[in-house]
């Protein structure tokens, strides 16, 4: 069984390895936003006392550029394949396979993310390093913690996207959840500004009570070494809890959805 999922992950990796031009275009796009977001956040540091909400200039630059790399790695904004398959009824093909639909898609997505971490993550970070002074982690452990953090972020992102699309089992047209997800994931996830720019209590509440910061904000805070190793491990723990909770929810929703599914004729 495990071999099937490994094979699916490898297939996911290979599939995205063929989209070379798309990856190049995405890196260019993410880099343009990297320059813009860096300029805006640097203006904030310039106007403040060189350190704003615990971020100095190199930390902010790293936050922005690694954040631009994470967009395509955790894939916040993905095509709505699953919702379309549910609407058209094609999803029946997935249900006929002798593998669990959630694990099957997660395996494919992890393969995709593995490929993206070599291309869509490294690309913008390299551009950022060329033009800005990025912060190199001072503790070797940070590299390992960041790797784990990105893995958790990918799982949470996958789970959220799965849930948004699975809404189509009930709604058929999952546009509402999709729009809400696009809006909230960037804004409350820490992509447009570090969440610590908000009042501390609000930032904490978002991190603990919503999955969004586990996708962008927390991996970046782990990378720029916000706090001690213990703090980094605590952030990872929050992410792991969200990953577990969301995957459990995905499986439950999938089971309920299968019972609800009406394959439209045509």
């Amino acid at each position: 069984m495990v071999r099937a999922y490994v094979a699916l992950a490898i297939a996911g990796f290979r599939r995205y390895a063929t989209y070379r031009q798309a990856a190049a275009a995405a890196i260019v796009t993410n880099s343009i936003f990297g320059f813009l977001r860096c300029a805006i956040l640097f203006a904030v540091v310039d106007a403040g006392s060189r350190v704003v909400a615990g971020y100095d200039e190199p930390r902010l630059a790293t936050f922005v550029w690694a954040g631009q790399g994470l967009i395509g790695t955790v894939l916040i904004w993905a095509p709505t394949d699953l919702a379309d398959r549910i609407r058209t009824g094609d999803v029946v093909m997935d249900l006929l396979r002798p593998v669990d639909p959630v694990w099957q898609q997660l395996a494919g997505d992890l393969g995709r993310a593995a490929h993206a971490s070599f291309t869509r993550f490294v690309g913008p970070v390299a551009v950022g390093a060329l033009f800005f002074h990025l912060r190199v982690p001072s503790r070797p452990a940070t590299y390992v913690l960041f790797g784990c953090s990105v893995l958790m972020a990918t799982i949470v992102s996958f789970g959220c996207r799965f849930l948004v699309n699975a809404a189509a089992y009930w709604l058929l047209d999952a546009r509402g959840p999709q729009v809400a997800w696009t809006l909230l994931s960037g804004f409350l996830g820490g992509l447009y500004f570090p969440l610590w720019f908000l009042p501390d209590a609000a930032a904490r509440a978002l991190i603990v009570a919503t999955p969004f910061p586990s996708i962008i904000q927390l991996p970046l805070d782990v990378l720029v070494e916000r706090g001690t190793v213990a703090d980094q491990v605590a952030m990872l723990a929050v992410q792991a809890s969200w990953a577990a909770a969301i995957l459990a929810l995905c499986r439950w929703v999938q089971r309920r959805g299968e019972r609800k599914l009406v394959v439209q004729g045509g």
Binding site: I40, V44, G48, V52, A53, G176, Y192, F193, F197, P199
Partner: peptide
């Protein structure tokens, strides 16, 4: 839903500006 979403995109653009001014007096 789409109409509400469209309004919310505008809200979020402006909200991001407000958030930055929470931490600094001028840009």
């Amino acid at each position: 839903i789409d109409l509400v979403g469209s309004v919310m995109f505008g809200v979020i653009d402006l909200a991001s500006v407000l958030v930055l001014f929470r931490v600094v007096p001028a840009l």
